[in-house]
């Protein structure tokens, strides 16, 4: 049974459309990853889900409740941890949590007990009574996760929970998320880190240009893709003509599906092959032509390959493509009331 349904969400900011009919279904008790490059529409989708933003079209249903018609009920069901942590620097972490507890109308005793539990669970004891202004990024993130969990929501929504974090804070957050999932909380998190989605998510959706373009369990997505990935170098630094020649030579080998020349890595060749057995044939073929093998490595398809297959570009390229186009000022205005 799905706890969360996003149905055909559309949203534009002026002429720029952020969501183009995004649909998503998150099963109950699932840790669900939303993978996509910056600017794909992840944050917009989550802000709509958090009732901070109204979609132009579409429906949001959480635990059978329509978020657009009964936003207050949905807010009560959900914990939302935004990407940019808004924090009151003058308050201590504990005071901020207490404020949060009062906004969710927890009874005082229960509230304080929950705060103690979370402080303990996230190892915040050493600094929770210091002012938030003195916290590092990792501390703030942990505090923010704690404030999202204070009222024990059924659904926890996190926007890029570990972006720019130190390893220790990231480990703490991952562990807490896994525990929560094991205890039955449904979690939806967005990320542009492949390894984060790979390490955490039971199911995932790849988002590009405001749409879901692939959906499923990470393992299943990789298996569907099929084939092995091979990286081949005939010399440490080859050149274009040589790479072209090798490509033409190997393209015709039985079991080779596709060959791409990777200029950025000294004209190495990236191959997609049907299985391990093809490697022997490749080596034979090269030996016949008197070509050496400087290096040959083979791997199972990764999520990056899934992304590449779905969008026609690597996640890294997609990030680079939008890197120069973002306007932080514009984005802040959009998030301001």
């Amino acid at each position: 049974m799905s706890l969360l349904e996003l149905d055909q969400l559309e949203k534009s900011y002026g002429a720029v459309s952020a969501l183009n009919g995004l649909s998503l279904s998150v099963p109950s008790g699932c840790l669900y990853g939303l993978l996509g490059p910056n600017g794909a529409g992840k944050t917009t989708a989550l802000r709509i889900l958090a009732t901070l933003l109204a979609p132009d079209r579409g429906r949001v249903v959480v635990a059978g409740v329509d978020a657009l018609q009964e936003p207050r009920t949905v807010r009560q069901l959900m914990g939302y941890v935004a990407q940019e942590v808004a924090i009151d620097k003058i308050l201590t972490g504990r005071e901020l949590l207490a404020l949060q507890g009062d906004l969710y109308h927890l009874q005082r005793q229960h509230r304080n007990r929950r705060i103690d539990q979370l402080v303990d669970r996230m190892s915040m004891g050493d600094w929770i009574d210091r002012r938030c202004g003195t916290y590092s990024g990792g501390m703030r993130r942990r505090l923010d996760l704690a404030s999202g969990l204070l009222h024990q929501p059924q659904l926890l929504v996190l926007d890029e929970p570990t972006v720019g974090l130190d390893i220790e804070s990231r480990a703490v957050i991952w562990e807490v998320l896994r525990d929560l999932r094991d205890q039955g909380t449904t979690i939806l998190l967005s990320s542009h880190y492949l390894e984060e989605v790979e390490a955490l998510a039971d199911r995932m959706a790849i988002i590009d240009a405001g749409q879901v373009i692939a959906e499923g369990a990470p393992e299943a997505l990789k298996q569907q893709l099929g084939g092995d990935r091979v990286t081949l170098r005939v010399r440490e630094f080859s050149d274009q003509p040589e790479a072209e020649r090798v490509r033409q030579l190997l393209e015709v080998v039985d079991g080779v599906r596709r060959i791409v020349i990777n200029r950025a890595q000294g004209y190495s060749l990236n191959l997609v092959v049907d299985g391990e057995h093809v490697l022997a044939t490749l080596k034979q073929r090269l030996a016949v032509e008197n070509l050496d093998v400087f290096s040959l490595s083979q791997s199972r398809p990764s999520l990056d390959d899934v992304y590449l297959q779905a969008t026609g570009r690597t996640l890294m390229d997609a990030e680079l493509a939008v890197a120069g186009q973002r306007d932080p000022k514009q984005e802040r205005r959009q998030s301001m009331r």
Partner: peptide, 25 residues
């Protein structure tokens, strides 16, 4: 950490009156 109750949060809104909640926030 206690297990997250699936039936929303245990000690919140339902029993508290609207006015008490308004005062609290």
């Amino acid at each position: 950490m206690t297990s997250p109750a699936l039936s929303t949060s245990s000690s919140s809104s339902d029993n508290g009156s609207a006015i008490a909640e308004l005062l609290q926030e």
